[in-house]
Computed example of a mutant assay.
Amino acid sequence: MKSAHDLVAEAKAHIHEIDLQEAEQAIRAADALIDVREPDEFVQGHIPGAVNIPRGLLEFKLSATQELAPRDLKLVLYCKTSGRAALAAASLKQMGYLQVSSISGGFDAWAEAGKAVQQTSLPSFE
């Protein structure tokens, strides 16, 4: 029986994973930077310019969003440490997306390297 780590390792063998040095250029060249973490993680901090599409909804959202449906889009994905993003990138590759990259080390590596982080303010209901 395969573990989650086995599935991530298999996915990483078939996707394009980029390091932090490549990430900034790839993000500038991308049509979309997608954070596949959960909304509560995204609100706490994310890479500026990212859109949040949780891993569990990714395939459905991309199929249903006209701007994200073209298979030749340049997409950069990330999650907390790179496991979910690797699985997402492999799934998008299976869907026919041709230019999908995943950031190695994910958001944690990005933040630890001192790169820009944006936080989303939630409205106060008081």
Rank of each mutant, 00 (worst) to 15 (best):
D72V: 12
L33H: 04
D19L: 09
G56L: 06
S124I: 15
A111R: 11
L7D: 03
V8E: 03
F125E: 12
Q66F: 12
I34E: 01
A111W: 00
R28N: 13
A113G: 09
A113T: 10
D40W: 11
Q66T: 14
L33D: 03
P123S: 13
K80Q: 15
K74P: 03
G83Y: 00
A113V: 08
E112L: 11
Q66K: 14
K12E: 08
I103W: 00
R71Y: 08
S91W: 05
I53C: 04
A111T: 08
T81D: 02
L58R: 02
E112T: 10
D19V: 10
R71W: 08
D35T: 01
G83F: 00
G49Y: 04
A23T: 05
F60E: 09
V51G: 05
E38N: 10
E41F: 05
T120V: 14
L20S: 07
A26C: 07
S82R: 04
I18Q: 04
A4V: 13
R55N: 10
I15H: 02
Q99Y: 14
A89R: 03
E41S: 10
G83N: 07
L33A: 06
L68W: 09
E10K: 10
I53L: 06
T81Q: 07
H14D: 11
D40N: 13
Q94S: 14
L92T: 05
G49P: 01
V51N: 07
I47W: 01
Q21D: 14
Q21C: 09
I15T: 09
E17N: 06
V100A: 08
L33P: 00
G45W: 03
L33V: 08
S91H: 07
A13Y: 07
K61I: 15
E112W: 01
D108L: 09
G83E: 00
T120Y: 09
E112G: 06
S63K: 15
V36G: 00
G56K: 05
P123R: 12
V36A: 01
H5F: 13
I47L: 05
A26I: 07
L98P: 05
E38C: 06
G45R: 05
A9M: 11
F125R: 14
P123E: 14
G56A: 09
F42I: 08
E112K: 12
W110K: 04
R55G: 06
L20Q: 06
S104W: 02
